[in-house]
Amino acid sequence: MTEMTRLDEQPAVSHAPAEDVLTPEKAAHQRRMAMWRLIIVGVLLAFVAFLVLGLQRQNVSQQRASGMAPDFEFTTFDGEAISLADLAGQGVVLNFWASWCDPCRAEADLLEQTWRREQNNGITFIGLDYLDQEHAALKYMAEYDITYPNGADIQSQAARSYGIKGVPETFFISPDGKIQSQVIGPIVSQADLDRRLDEIRP
């Protein structure tokens, strides 16, 4: 008969049960319910907060065009350890590239020639090899006779902290460590490169 009585007990839908007497069990039940509700809302809030953070992070990395250049360290293919902090006082041209990247080839020669011209004028060129293999990278460097310091960006750490969108991408860092300008894609004009270099001369 239990089910029947239950059926009969059903409130007439629109009215909530009017039993306001609080027995201890009921109070405990209500406390438990309140706790569960808190947990559920908390979890949902945390999830939403993460989504907000994720979205923000993505926007930040998209718009990172200026501000302080994040520090990074790397070891060149010749075995020399270099960090950005060591280069304080010089203008730094930081170029991300990869040997599998066809557009990179469009700027490789221009960068190398300009480096040769500028290396005694307080400007350093640095090439960070993004997601690449040493064999292929060395071959690429030999092909374009690249002599400025180049090394693998291990685990893409620099690439991530600079928020690059792809390769090639080049950052122009002033002697006091600020990103002065940024080029996404290959740099094809000497004039453009010179203009940007002028901004970061010590």
Partner: peptide, 25 residues
């Protein structure tokens, strides 16, 4: 490492081909 959810043996990027060459070496 460049795409998401694509296995290296099925990836046709040049970067992946180079990775495969590296594996061969």
């Amino acid at each position: 490492p460049l795409c998401s959810g694509v296995r290296l043996d099925g990836c046709e990027l040049k970067a992946c081909d180079q990775m495969k060459d590296e594996i061969a070496i």
